[in-house]
Design a protein around this nucleic acid. Structure first.
Length: 634
DNA sequence: ACGGCTGGCACT
DNA sequence: TAGTGCCAG
């Protein structure tokens, strides 16, 4: 369920940038002959021409839609070019699009906080950049406004010209005649003049001026993206994420749209409720069917209390706010995905009906997953902690077949073979739960594996080996237990040290309120809290990572292993094998050894042992925060 | 026989 | 936590 976030007081400048039919553009760059042609990207050509996942604007004019079959597309648009998604290991391989997306993110992340929202979308928080521009070169003083910026669409600006313009753009695409062209040019120039005037208004309020700067910055970024990647994109510029996202697709392709505060209400009143993000599904339907709310304007007549009554505290407040254009959600500073997954469906006759075929496919999926987390590790120094298996299954001849195949997860061990083994064990465990006591036939219609709980390997602690080598490490390599070292040859035996992933989370205010109504729940909540406090959050993980260069020194390795309490390591269940991570308590580290370490590492370790802050009188430590905001020195 | 394949988030 | 469900494109 959606949740309202506290609204920042200061006005922000937020942009949502959305690539235009991205996969098509990627293919058009690979094969320029496709440019300007009706084109679609399709995956799996064997059944009814495959499914379309991206459609060029030329093809859309013929009525070609995403989710059409290749065959259907050919029917409505015989001249369409259908490009297949690359296939690897007998499944669609989206890596070309992922890396193309990274190219774009790299460019877009240069002007402010940047959040990768999907493979082809980002949010930007340009507040600081906009403020800076306003101070140093405000639009009203600029002699020449950046051309792309004057092509912006400003919501609420007198729209006669826009309507005209839009109509003419359509006719333009059908090879218009000279007379039309003349009027088009004139209208465009009128339009650009009025946009320029709007962007440069000296009498604009502060918020609008910030937006103007935002629009100019985004225009520059979009041109840069085009120059450096050949990709066009569209964008929305507003004071929050919700509004920016809402309008980024309003004028496509290759255009941007600005939402001044003054235009919000008029814009929202008539907006169909289903167009709002998060309301495209069941919640939106419920609003329509149960409350008769068809537009965002209709929502305005409900009090916050009423909405909370229907949908709970969180969602109720959220609904009340979005109806008024209020959204406090922050742009996260994150350029990389939070998880990696690969999956495949096996519809109808293709369903997998025995362990052997499941294993075949699971092995392929795991191979791809392993490759992806491996390159994430190499390129981004990130480690994934959890492996999860999902499946969809049917039981033969049972009315009970509504039951879902349960997802299962376990600690993720690096190395393709280990991932394959663990995934198969997870599958067997899930299948066992799925079947229960019955001994019926089953079939699998979808399989996927994913790697999640990914965190950065902290800079400065990259290799514990580097720091633990003492002058007199004379232990025999024979003592070293290498049994759980990765087999994958691309992995070496380098040890990484990182804080325990244990999250220290305080229940949110709203949560507390919710619990407050129910003494039982409140008690549970309290118990949870106490557990967290009593458990000393000083555990640290040692993670096996890659050793790119030299052969690891066994003696050093053993020395490192001295600090690993293998007894404390345990696996999550009978189905999971040993992991490449161990838990131990930093307080168990021999202080004498700590002294051998470089000062910065000593400080880090002491930071883990000591509670990071004394500001709160509560005796609550936090591993994650003490690490990432280390050393408030006292 | 389902759009397929990814991804994110909230809730319990 | 692990596991489920919803949502988006």
């Amino acid at each position: 369920m959606p949740v309202a976030r506290p609204e920042p007081q200061e006005p922000r400048v937020i942009a949502h940038v959305d690539m235009d039919c991205f996969y098509v553009q990627v293919e058009q760059r690979r094969n320029p002959e496709l440019r300007g042609q009706p084109t679609a990207v399709v995956q799996y050509n064997d059944w009814k021409g495959g499914g379309l996942i991206a459609v060029s604007y030329e093809a859309r004019k013929f009525g070609v839609k995403r989710s059409m079959r290749g065959d259907e597309a050919k029917m409505v648009c015989p001249s369409i070019n259908l490009v297949q998604v690359p296939v690897a290991r007998d499944k669609a391989d989206l890596n070309v699009y992922r890396s193309a997306g990274s190219e774009v993110v790299t460019i877009l992340s240069t002007k402010g906080k940047c959040e990768r929202a999907s493979i082809d979308e980002v949010y930007l928080d340009l507040t600081d950049a906009a403020k800076e521009m306003l101070l140093e070169s405000p639009p009203e003083l600029l002699e020449l406004i950046f051309e792309e910026a004057t092509k912006s669409n400003i919501l609420g600006l007198p729209s006669v010209i826009f309507v005209l313009h839009d109509l003419i753009v359509v006719s333009l695409q059908f090879d218009m005649n000279v007379t039309n062209r003349a009027s088009y040019v004139q209208d465009v120039s009128n339009r650009e003049d009025s946009v320029r005037a709007w962007l440069c208004r000296a009498d604009a309020d502060y918020q609008d001026k910030l937006l103007s700067c935002g629009a100019i910055i985004v225009a520059q970024l979009r041109v840069k993206v085009l120059e450096e990647t050949q990709f066009t994109c569209s964008a929305g510029i507003a004071h929050n994420k919700m509004l920016a996202k809402l309008v980024s697709g309003m004028h496509k392709p290759a255009q941007q749209t600005v939402v001044p505060s003054s235009a919000i209400q008029d814009f929202l009143v008539s907006l169909p409720i289903k167009k709002m993000k998060q309301l495209g599904g069941k919640l939106g339907s419920s609003l329509q069917d149960d409350l008769g709310v068809n537009t965002v304007g209709d929502l305005l007549s409900f009090t916050e209390d009423k909405l909370q009554e229907y949908y709970g505290v969180n969602t109720g407040t959220w609904l009340w706010k979005i109806a008024r254009g209020i959204s406090g959600e922050e742009v996260e500073d994150r350029l990389l995905p939070k998880s990696h997954g690969c999956g495949k469906t096996f519809p109808g006759p293709k369903a997998l009906k025995n362990n052997a075929s499941v294993k075949t496919w699971l092995d392929r999926l795991c191979e791809e997953l392993s490759e992806r987390i491996q390159s994430d590790l190499n390129q981004n120094k990130r480690i994934a902690q959890t492996l999860t298996l999902y499946a969809r299954a049917c039981k033969k001849n049972k009315s009970d077949s509504i039951k879902k195949f349960p997802s299962k997860s376990c600690p993720l061990r690096y190395g393709t073979v280990k991932i394959q083994e663990d995934a198969m064990k997870l599958f067997e465990s899930g299948l066992h739960d799925f079947l229960g006591s019955q001994n019926t036939k089953w079939s699998i219609t979808s399989l996927s594996v994913s790697a999640s709980k990914i965190f950065d390997i902290p800079i400065g602690t990259s290799s514990i080996l580097r720091y633990i080598k003492g002058p007199n490490s004379t232990v025999s390599p024979a003592n070293l237990d290498c049994s759980s070292l990765p087999e994958d040859p691309s992995l070496g035996n380098k040890l990484y040290i990182a804080p325990n992933h244990e999250e220290h989370c305080e229940p949110s205010l709203s949560e507390k309120e919710d619990y407050g109504n129910n003494s039982n729940l409140a008690k549970q909540c309290q118990i949870k809290e106490e557990k967290k406090v009593s458990k000393k959050l000083t555990e640290v993980k040692i993670i096996l990572g890659p050793e790119s260069s030299s052969e690891p020194n066994k003696a050093e390795e053993h020395k490192a292993a001295q600090y690993v309490d293998r007894n404390k390591f345990n696996t999550a269940g009978s189905n999971s094998a040993s992991s490449s991570t161990w838990m131990f308590n930093v307080e168990d580290i021999d202080p004498a050894v700590v002294e051998e370490l470089p000062p910065e590492i000593q400080r880090e370790i002491h930071g883990w042992i000591r509670p990071p802050k004394q500001s709160s009188s509560k005796t609550r430590g936090s591993t994650i925060s003490s690490y990432f905001q280390p050393a408030k020195r006292d």
